[in-house]
């Protein structure tokens, strides 16, 4: 029982980061029908910023906002340079464009920094734990969960209560009709990329605090987690994306602690197989978004 509770808390901590990533992926998919394989690059960019700042001896009070600003900036820049040119193109083209962006960004770091791992100092409290009864809780997990909850509440407020949120939801539901209402397509798409970058930036701060390092291809893992979580939740559903993130985090933690020793290193493999099974039984993900086939 205690062990399960322990897993639950660990899983929520991990799932929080995935939820933020998945929500960023889902926001972009909503307005552009683009599955962003370059989403993880926002964290890579943040990672190199953290590396540079850490070399200067800056503290995490400065590095944290720096990572977020870099992620938002990179998100907007990528939209401007690449994605704005393929708006309305076929899904095939959109998928490969984002795949191409992923490679260009990581190749630039390969070219101008180095292929090797760059490490930077992590805040000291990241590894601290505290006890509640017989539970051992990481300070880090607590911070992640609290910040994620606040971020999700703020995002909900943004989407539900502001005109920008209304425009974004309208554009995601029916882009043409939203434009007929006067929603500016440029602004709403850029806004979506900014929001997506902001969410990735916050997730990135945690991701980098935990890893304390970055490489040119460091974006692959967070990208995959975000994309898979969005897909588990049901592409196109923002609520589904958040749910998918938590489900993925919990599944990973539970499997890692429950699988027999021989298989435990293969946890990620097992998670993928489970996801494949989920798709076989629920092809549309956990939350279905209706897409009528027009004849």
């Amino acid at each position: 029982m205690i062990e399960l509770l322990q897993n639950l808390i660990d899983g929520l901590g991990r799932g929080s980061i995935y939820a933020l990533l998945a929500l960023g992926v889902a926001v972009i998919f909503g307005v552009m029908h683009l599955l962003n394989f370059a989403h993880g690059e926002l964290i890579t960019v943040g990672g190199y910023a953290a590396y540079a700042a850490s070399n200067q001896g800056w503290s995490w009070y400065v590095i944290t906002p720096l990572i977020i600003v870099c992620a938002v900036g990179a998100s907007l820049l990528i939209e401007r340079i690449a994605f704005s040119r393929v708006r309305g193109a076929s899904d095939f083209t959109l998928l490969l464009t984002s795949f191409g962006v992923h490679f260009v960004v990581s190749a630039i770091f390969l070219l101008y920094v180095s292929a090797s791992v760059k490490t930077f100092s992590r805040p000291r409290w990241v590894t601290n734990t505290y006890s509640v009864g017989s539970l051992n809780i990481e300070v880090f997990d607590t911070v992640v969960i609290v910040v994620t909850v606040i971020t999700l509440l703020a995002t909900t407020w943004l989407l539900q209560r502001t005109m920008f949120g209304l425009a974004l939801r309208g554009a995601a539901a029916d882009f043409d009709t939203a434009r007929l209402m006067g929603v500016k397509s440029d602004s709403v798409i850029r806004g979506a990329f900014a929001l997506s970058g902001l969410l990735a930036g916050i997730a990135g701060v945690f991701w980098l605090m935990r890893s304390g390092s970055t490489t040119p291809s460091a974006g692959i893992d967070p990208m995959l987690s975000g994309v898979l979580a969005a897909l588990i939740g049901g592409l196109g559903s923002l609520r589904g994306a958040v749910l998918g993130g938590f489900v993925l985090g919990l599944a990973e933690v539970l499997l890692r602690s429950r699988l027999p020793d021989g298989i435990a290193p293969l946890t990620d493999g097992v998670v993928f197989v489970l996801i494949a099974l989920l798709f076989i039984f629920r092809p549309q993900g956990l939350i279905t978004v209706a897409h009528a086939e027009r004849v």
């Binding site: 209304l166 939801r169 309208g170 539901a173 029916d174 043409d176 009709t177 939203a178 006067g182």
Partner: peptide, 18 residues
Amino acid sequence: RIFTDMTVEENLKIGGIT
């Protein structure tokens, strides 16, 4: 082509976005 997931009020608000 109303926004089915939004409330009546929200639909009207988006109409007045300008």
